[in-house]
Nucleic acid binder design. Structure first.
Lengths: 241, 241
DNA sequence: ATTGCACAGTCTGTATACAGGAGTGGAAAT
DNA sequence: ATTTCCACTCCTGTATACAGACTGTGCAAT
């Protein structure tokens, strides 16, 4: 792998694991030592993470880790709803290939399979995989490079992905209910796209995106930090300004 | 100014003026010579322009100038409609300061002033300025850092800004009609925000964004290139895939 | 004529050296 | 004690050297 790429994942880990705290200036030298790289690829990684929105540039030079507020999580949900809603609408308006329809049906059926038994310990990993396929397929089905870029940009934020809320907390009984509702929305979006009901596709997709945020915030509760992944990935929140 | 900044504007000029053609690989050395800089700041500029979407990374290394299709222009209009619509809705839902309202009213009144006389040779430059203030103020009024980032990202594309279509062709008689309609939409959006009619604000703003695209495409006609600025700025289109 | 291969030129990615500037801490003066 | 000024250190931005990879050309073989 290129030094720049590995510096990117290394830096992201340092940030998401909380070893680099929000607000403090990031020293290129320290990071370079820490990751066994020279400053050049580290600089490249810093610039890319800044363009992703994970870092804030300091006017006088350098970067700090960006702090996110609860408001940012809500807003990301709104934006995701708008963009994914647009993707679903465009897919419905422009029409999709039978290949695309099949991929969507497979994803929906895959999730149905997970919920076939009443067992509350369903396969969360598989749900995330199927869910990802469903959403990615719709993004692609919009057939819009511009839109896909915007969505990718947004999803690079650790709390903006369609599955972020699942990774945050997988206490099964509640989660199962939530996901069954979500799955019903998947089915409705698929049907709307099949029948070229673009407004319906957009509206449901928008609602679908915001549901996850609502759950994510419920999970978050009063905590100052949001633990996003089993391995300890953490997002630090600051109080609202 | 920093070398990186001036390399960015220099590179953007080289691209938009058509001296670097879409598809061809950009040589860091040539650009560095051309701009009297070393490769390091040129590389930084290349990376930033790539993150803006103006350049395409080549898998084997380096970048090419990105070619845009007519479809991209349409899609940018859809995305802009969604994002600015969301901004208007959030502004209406969350409420705006009287300071913000005043800025919006000033912008609208400013444009009214331009159309006060029947003279078809109204002040296009001023219109663009007022229009920009109006839109920027609404983006800020959404009070959402996440959304503003997304909008800024989109607007960095040369054909996605609210005034792109004006700069493309300012044949006055038609333009005047178009802009009077646009101004009526400004007024309606302002009123909707004042009265916290969020759905109305969103819908009108969305339509407003797409109107400009429609006009831009009409101007474009059959041409292979789209001249975006009086100084010769050009966007190259390729045939749809 | 076409295809495959080898070689050379060029380019990118990386490392490192250097200079200017920003931030910090301490000391001195009020 | 507080504030201001100065000096020092660290850091970023930039230039440049170097190595490996890739591309394109030309020649040879089929």
């Amino acid at each position: 792998m290129s030094q720049t790429l590995s510096a990117m994942v290394g830096l992201r880990d340092l940030i998401l694991s909380g070893e680099l705290l929000p607000g403090e200036r990031i020293s290129e030298n320290l990071v370079a030592q820490r990751l066994n790289a020279s400053r050049t690829p580290v600089r490249a990684a810093l610039m890319r993470l800044a363009s992703e929105g994970l870092l804030d540039p300091i006017p006088s030079g350098g970067f700090t880790v960006r702090a996110f507020t609860e408001r940012d999580v809500i807003d990301a949900g709104e934006v995701r709803g708008s963009l994914e809603g647009l993707a679903a609408r465009l897919a419905a308006e422009r029409g999709v290939s039978s290949d695309t329809l099949n991929r969507l049906r497979d994803a929906v059926q895959g999730i149905d399979g997970l919920f076939a038994s009443e067992d509350p310990h369903f396969d969360v990993k598989s749900y995330i995989a199927f869910n990802r396929i469903f959403h990615d397929t719709i993004h692609a089905a919009s057939d819009s490079a511009i839109l896909r870029r915007q969505i990718d940009q947004l999803m690079s934020l650790p709390f903006a992905s369609p599955s972020a809320f699942i990774e945050a907390d997988d206490s099964r009984p509640i989660l199962r209910t939530i996901l069954i509702v979500a799955q019903e929305q998947h089915r409705a979006v698929l049907e709307a796209i099949e029948q070229r009901q673009s407004a319906r596709a957009e509206a449901i997709m928008r609602e679908h995106a915001q549901n996850s945020v609502r759950y994510l915030l419920k999970v978050k509760g009063q905590a100052q930090q949001l633990r996003l992944k089993p391995n300890g990935t953490v997002i630090h929140f600051r109080q609202r300004a």
